[in-house]
Write a protein that binds this DNA or RNA. Structure first.
Lengths: 144, 144
DNA sequence: GTTATTTATATTGCGCGCAATATAATTGCC
DNA sequence: GGCAATTATATTGCGCGCAATATAAATAAC
């Protein structure tokens, strides 16, 4: 028995997005490996480089990652000596995440990654802008 | 110290794709849960419904998933009684993956999922076509 | 025909995604 | 002040992504 067209894998928008995203994250690896960062760890470090002394919730909002993802990820970053996690004095529930000196030192080499990725030339600049715009719209409209 | 613009999270195309894809897969969940399938399992079942008696390699190619992902995934599908994995007679290295009767019975309810997802209206049909096209192009151009 | 290479699948290990649940501190309400 | 509701973070458990490695069968080379 054969399936209707809407069940064919080639017609799955989500599969296209899914495999493109996974491929893109794989493409980051050669540039992130020397920094000893995974892509989600790189996202979190970008957030912290942009705004030091954030709470876990702040980092989740900035990176769009989940608490259950970020908490152990931050522990790994702390184990690498890139950040430390102190308790807030005003609110003992909050963790304040701060850069260590090595975390700060990693900023410069990490700043080269976007340029290295751009050299892949997977799509044109115009197409990249468009796909970002559409993905953003999709993300915003799906969010509950 | 502040970061240059290309290091800002808002400028990360990959983050837009990443979070949109994760959100889309989360959006599948309410429709896939009643079928007791995860999204990657749904992808593999779509491949099998489309072409029965494929090898693991065939399924990896169709779904763009990895061997290390597909092998245990197939075992879980087998444990649910949806498929079985017999050895090929001609080539003892090959596994031939076949639908069971319950696997076949799941096809009809699964065929309703794309329509249910379409009702989310996260983006217009035209935008969906475009994002699929761009994601495909990106995927093809990244592949080594 | 034996050895080397290739091919198909499986295994291991670690990090992540995420739902569900727990813990503990803060805030609101009376 | 005392108690419920809320808020911030952490924990658990399972499935997946993927690199590295292993195993074993088929094929090629000689």
């Amino acid at each position: 028995m054969s399936s209707p067209p809407h069940m064919m894998l080639e017609n799955q928008i989500c599969l296209s997005l899914y495999s493109a995203t996974n491929a893109l994250i794989r493409a980051y690896r050669p540039f992130l490996d020397p920094l000893d960062l995974t892509y989600p760890q790189y996202l979190v470090m970008l957030a912290i480089w942009d705004a030091d002394n954030m709470s876990v919730t702040d980092i989740c909002r900035a990176t769009r990652l989940d608490t259950g993802t970020v908490t152990p990820l931050l522990k790994r970053l702390e184990a690498k000596g890139l950040i430390y996690r102190k308790r807030s004095a005003e609110d003992e529930r909050r963790r304040v995440i701060s850069l260590t000196e090595s975390g700060e030192l990693l900023r410069a080499p990490a700043s080269k990654v976007p340029g290295q990725m751009a050299c892949l030339n997977a799509v044109s600049i115009e197409e990249a802008k468009q796909i970002k715009l559409l993905a953003e719209k999709m993300y915003q409209n799906i969010k509950i």
